[in-house]
């Protein structure tokens, strides 16, 4: 099973990199761009075939290592 994990900064946590990216888009002539936030996207293959168990496992991975839940949220998508 493949897991797709998106890690993003929590709402309200300043994202200077996102802001710089937004500024760069503006200087390239893309007007009207706002709210750029930079995150991470991680994919991994897991042996577990049961979806509930897989979700539990990947959630643990996010809590223990992949995300720092003080500042980051994570979203998991599983694909058989």
């Amino acid at each position: 099973m493949k897991a797709h994990i998106h890690i993003t900064l929590k709402k309200g946590v300043l994202d200077p990199e996102g802001k710089a990216i937004g500024n760069a888009l503006g200087s390239l002539g893309f007007d009207g761009v706002d709210g750029v936030r930079k995150g991470k996207y991680i994919t991994l293959d897991i042996a577990e075939a049961d979806e509930d168990k897989a979700l539990k496992q990947v959630t643990q991975m996010c809590e223990k290592l992949l995300a720092n839940t003080v500042i980051e949220d994570y979203a998991i998508k599983l694909e058989a």
Binding site: P16, E17, A20, I71
Partner: peptide, 16 residues
């Protein structure tokens, strides 16, 4: 900070 022995996080410098 990552270990939880101290609270909070050290993020990228605001001016990058």
């Amino acid at each position: 900070a990552e270990s939880g022995l101290l609270p909070g996080v050290l993020m990228r410098n605001a001016n990058l």
